[in-house]
Design a protein around this nucleic acid. Structure first.
Length: 479
RNA sequence: GGCCUGAUGGCGGAGUGGUUACGCAGCGGACUGCAAAUCCGUGCACCCGAGUUCGAUUCUCGGUCAGGCCUCCA
């Protein structure tokens, strides 16, 4: 099976062929760490995490290098640091740690590398130096400006005609710019702001240059895949590529072989009555809904399409996972054991007809909705096997389902924990006690007592499911 | 003004030139003391107009509507 990815540059799906299969390179624009990340920030993280996992499966875990930068020099960071009266790294360290924790709850693997702008300063300054030397940048009034006229293909990625940029430049163009589209590589720091020495005077780097420098330093040109939100297409990625190539690289080698952009996440209208609808910070969301459900919600639509973030979306994601976890739970009870940690085998070595549909969906430009449909199909087969009492079949299908789901970061947890999550031991004992009483009452055909106990459980937000050999329970969804 | 997306059933959301997406919700049935979970069955769609075609939701053109970017937002 071959992987096809939609390439923004070509505006079409292209078969993915890495430059070097033993070192597949991917770069995704990461966070500016000055505050909590909101769920929109998490979308590219989760989307490209799926791609990262898929690439690791296809090319081997040690053959994929995924770098995501951390912008830790920025006006907003300065502002926050000033407000709190602390150095900027107090701010950036704090929010980077929180960011990484939050993304981990969403099931995102840590990128192979997380270069920070402040730790890439030498490479940034060196790159600017080369740009000046090549005539692709000029110094003016303490700034260093990129000369967009130096890059013939400027505007090609985002399809922005240069003429329009002039016409559309309604915002004041700084007087020291030779062309309205020219942008800053280096600028003087303001009073009390962090400052670095450079050949053009003390100051700090512009935003775009850090990504170019990190890519060159961490991955080397050209990289295989460059990802990010569609909003970054212009000007950020356009600028990134222009600088990156003009800094002494043969333009024909290219900057990134595949440009990928995820669609925007919208928060819809304000009239969201559901409790979760108004919460947008990942840090808050993960307290109210399982991270896995949030991950599912982010992937429920295709990554290139816009996604409307609503409370209902989260509820539906939970229910979808209920269905899958329910199948695994039933299988565990039927088989009397739990699956061992699924190992990557069975379908990656060759084409397993049972997972072909799932893999085909992922290989088709990360079609996660279709992959989800395939997971439900696998769950159905598992259920059928259980219904038919076929142990071997059930064991096999459980394994296949878990392997497939695990590949994209789902069903890694214990189904019991999924359904009984958030319940402490004391409560658990109390519930188990009530369940036992109810089983007794039912055995004695004392329906009144059984119903009374069930009402009590219901008031504890517990749902009882009677089975032939006893009863099980799960936490009901909150109203 | 320029550039670029998209319009699918009650909701979310894939896909296809002629045939079941899938999940949730609904309806009927089985199971159950009653439920829940599960199983079986079932209703519901492809923005408007023209064109191409034996045939279009799927291709082309036009229109309408919605959204994004062009201003260091992921």
């Amino acid at each position: 099976m071959t992987l096809a990815l939609y390439d923004t540059m070509a505006r079409e799906k292209r078969t993915f062929v890495p430059k070097d299969p033993s070192r597949v390179t991917m770069y995704v624009c990461g966070p500016t760490v000055y505050n909590y990340a909101h769920i929109g920030n998490a979308r590219p993280v989760v989307v490209f995490d799926v791609l990262f996992r898929l690439l690791r499966r296809l090319y081997g875990e040690d053959s994929v290098v995924y770098a995501a930068n951390v912008t830790d020099v920025d006006d907003k960071i300065n502002k926050k640091a000033a407000e709190e009266g602390v150095p900027i790294d107090t701010i950036t360290d704090r929010y980077l740690a929180i960011y990484n924790e939050d993304m981990a709850v969403l099931g995102a693997l840590r990128p192979t590398e997380q270069p920070r702008a402040t730790q890439t300063m030498d490479a940034i300054i060196a790159m600017i130096g080369r740009l000046v030397q090549n005539g692709a940048a000029y110094a003016a009034e303490g700034h260093v400006i990129f000369n967009t006229q130096a890059y013939a293909d400027y505007g090609k990625l985002s399809r922005q005609p240069m003429d329009d940029m002039i016409a559309g430049a309604r915002v004041d163009v700084a007087p020291y710019k030779q062309h309205p589209a020219d942008f800053v590589l280096w600028k003087p720091s303001k009073e009390n702001e962090p400052v670095w020495e450079s050949p053009w005077g003390p100051g700090r780097p512009g935003w775009h240059i850090e990504c170019s420098a990190m890519i060159e330093q961490s991955l080397g040109l050209p990289i295989d895949i460059h990802g990010g939100g569609i909003d970054l297409l212009f000007p950020h990625h356009e600028n990134e590529m222009a600088q990156g190539l003009c800094a002494g690289h043969d333009h024909s080698v290219g900057y990134a072989n595949y440009w990928m952009h995820n669609g925007f996440l919208n928060f819809g209208d304000e009239k969201m009555s559901k409790s979760l609808g108004n919460v947008v910070l990942v840090h808050e969301l993960v307290k109210q809904a399982p991270g896995e459900a949030l991950r599912w919600a982010l992937l429920v639509g295709h990554y290139r399409a816009p996604l409307e973030w609503t409370g209902e979306l989260i509820e539906q994601a939970k229910k979808a996972l209920d269905r899958l976890y329910g199948a695994v739970q039933d299988a565990n009870r039927f088989l009397g054991d739990t699956a061992t940690a699924p190992e990557a085998k069975g379908y990656d070595a060759g084409v397993n007809p049972d997972t072909e549909r799932f893999m085909a969906a992922l290989n088709d430009d990360l079609n996660t909705p279709a992959a989800f449909a395939a997971l439900f199909e696998l769950a159905d087969r598992l259920r059928l096997a259980i219904r038919d009492g076929a142990e071997g079949e059930a064991r096999y299908h459980r394994q296949v389902l878990l392997e497939a789901a695990n590949l994209i970061g789902f069903l890694a947890g214990d189904p019991e924990a999924w359904f009984q999550g958030g319940v402490d031991e004391g409560m658990k004992d109390r519930i188990d006690g009530l369940i036992a009483q109810r089983v007794e009452a039912r055995a004695a055909k004392d329906w009144a007592a059984a119903d009374r106990i069930r009402d009590e459980l219901t008031s504890l937000n517990v749902e009882v499911m009677d089975g032939p050999t006893g009863a099980t329970w799960r936490i009901k969804e909150q109203a």
